[in-house]
Amino acid sequence: MRKPLIAGNWKMNGSAELIEAFGQAFAEDGFSSSAEILIHPPFPYLEAARRAFSGTCIEIGAQTLNPLHSGARTGEVSGQMLREFGVEYVLVGHSERRQLYQEGDEQVYDRALAALSVGIKPILCVGETLEERDGGQTEAVVLRQVGHVMARLEPEQRRRVAIAYEPVWAIGTGRTATPDQAQAVMASIRRYQAQFDRELADELRLLYGGSMNASNASELLAQEDIDGGLIGGASLKVDDFKAICQSAG
């Protein structure tokens, strides 16, 4: 049985005060969940998060990484650096990285490989724009993005990857794919993975990443192929994030 994974992506938001608030809330309540729980804070807060989340069920993720281990790359952060701060997961291919920073499929693959090489588990983000959905290209776009990474990894590497489907048209807009729409895409990803390994396909954790919140999480997480969520705005609110974690079991 797949263990649910709830990952909060704070993007370029948050503060030292918010880090402390999350740490205290999850520690004081003795909060527990059957889900694996992550928060991806901005880089400057990684050490504060490691301290604040110590003793809680929250693990630390990073929002991106550079494919190189070191070098003349001003402003960049390597996987080896992230490991020193206890980072367990890293997002690769988030739609904002693809759109705002022109990270293509090959660059996403390079980042996934760099993470795996230092023992960090990638969360591969895939998804289509509104234009692509309206053009009937959803499955072609999503499976191209998935395949460019997963088809080139070794079997043992694939088992360490989670995939987040984030319809670009539903991120930060308040719009959400219906549970049926999200489930259809998740099922197609799992069928694709079965081409490599049926056991892998059964174990692969698929997260929904399009404006999941406290009010719609239960219905989305009830779908057969949705194993968790990549949470944006709602992950900045302690009570909302805890409610989503509880919805996961």
Rank of each mutant, 00 (worst) to 15 (best):
residue 120 I to G: 02
residue 121 K to N: 13
residue 122 P to H: 00
residue 122 P to W: 00
residue 122 P to G: 00
residue 123 I to N: 01
residue 126 V to L: 05
residue 126 V to A: 07
residue 127 G to K: 01
residue 128 E to C: 14
residue 130 L to N: 09
residue 131 E to T: 11
residue 134 D to K: 15
residue 134 D to W: 15
residue 135 G to L: 07
residue 136 G to Y: 12
residue 136 G to M: 13
residue 136 G to R: 07
residue 137 Q to V: 08
residue 137 Q to C: 07
residue 137 Q to W: 03
residue 137 Q to R: 15
residue 142 V to I: 05
residue 143 L to V: 11
residue 144 R to F: 01
residue 144 R to P: 12
residue 145 Q to T: 05
residue 146 V to H: 00
residue 146 V to A: 03
residue 146 V to T: 05
residue 146 V to F: 14
residue 150 M to P: 03
residue 150 M to F: 12
residue 151 A to S: 15
residue 152 R to I: 01
residue 153 L to H: 13
residue 153 L to Q: 10
residue 154 E to W: 10
residue 154 E to R: 15
residue 155 P to W: 00
residue 155 P to F: 00
residue 157 Q to L: 10
residue 157 Q to K: 07
residue 158 R to K: 06
residue 158 R to S: 01
residue 158 R to D: 05
residue 160 R to I: 02
residue 162 A to V: 07
residue 162 A to H: 06
residue 162 A to P: 13
residue 163 I to R: 00
residue 163 I to V: 07
residue 164 A to K: 13
residue 165 Y to S: 06
residue 165 Y to P: 10
residue 166 E to V: 14
residue 168 V to E: 09
residue 168 V to P: 06
residue 170 A to R: 09
residue 170 A to W: 09
residue 172 G to F: 09
residue 173 T to S: 05
residue 173 T to D: 12
residue 175 R to G: 03
residue 175 R to H: 10
residue 175 R to V: 02
residue 175 R to N: 10
residue 175 R to C: 03
residue 177 A to Y: 13
residue 178 T to F: 02
residue 179 P to W: 01
residue 180 D to R: 12
residue 181 Q to G: 05
residue 184 A to G: 04
residue 184 A to P: 08
residue 184 A to N: 07
residue 186 M to Q: 13
residue 186 M to I: 12
residue 187 A to V: 02
residue 187 A to W: 06
residue 187 A to I: 03
residue 187 A to D: 10
residue 188 S to Q: 12
residue 189 I to F: 09
residue 191 R to V: 06
residue 191 R to A: 09
residue 192 Y to S: 15
residue 192 Y to L: 06
residue 193 Q to D: 04
residue 194 A to E: 06
residue 194 A to M: 08
residue 197 D to M: 04
residue 198 R to F: 11
residue 199 E to Q: 11
residue 199 E to K: 13
residue 199 E to V: 10
residue 199 E to M: 10
residue 199 E to L: 04
residue 200 L to M: 07
residue 201 A to I: 04
residue 203 E to M: 02
residue 206 L to K: 04
residue 206 L to T: 07
residue 206 L to V: 09
residue 207 L to R: 14
residue 207 L to V: 03
residue 209 G to L: 02
residue 210 G to R: 00
residue 211 S to R: 02
residue 212 M to N: 04
residue 213 N to M: 04
residue 215 S to V: 10
residue 218 S to Q: 15
residue 218 S to L: 09
residue 219 E to Q: 12
residue 219 E to M: 07
residue 221 L to R: 08
residue 222 A to W: 02
residue 222 A to S: 15
residue 222 A to P: 07
residue 223 Q to H: 02
residue 223 Q to G: 03
residue 223 Q to Y: 00
residue 223 Q to D: 01
